[in-house]
């Protein structure tokens, strides 16, 4: 559940901090993108595929 765990982790971040999410779920690419665009105060900076892992970089903007 990459989205749910990302949300929890973002909640504990301070403003401007960037979170790196490492997921094994290929669906996380679309899911985290959708979550970030539908959520205020977060900015999806980058998404990258690294072997079997999918990395997402999310900045807390507010």
């Amino acid at each position: 559940m990459p989205v749910v765990k990302t949300k929890s982790a973002v909640d504990s971040l301070s403003e401007e901090a960037v979170l790196e999410v490492v997921a094994t779920d290929p669906g996380s690419v679309s899911d985290i993108d959708g979550w970030a665009s539908g959520t205020d105060g977060v900015d999806l900076l980058d998404q990258a595929e690294d072997g079997d892992e999918f990395k997402h970089y999310i900045q807390k903007t507010a």
Binding site: M1, V3, V4, T6, K7, S8, D31, W35, G38, T39, D40
Partner: peptide
């Protein structure tokens, strides 16, 4: 439970 927890993550 999956949509419930996901929707909550969307606020």
């Amino acid at each position: 439970l999956i949509p419930a927890s996901t929707a909550a993550a969307f606020g």
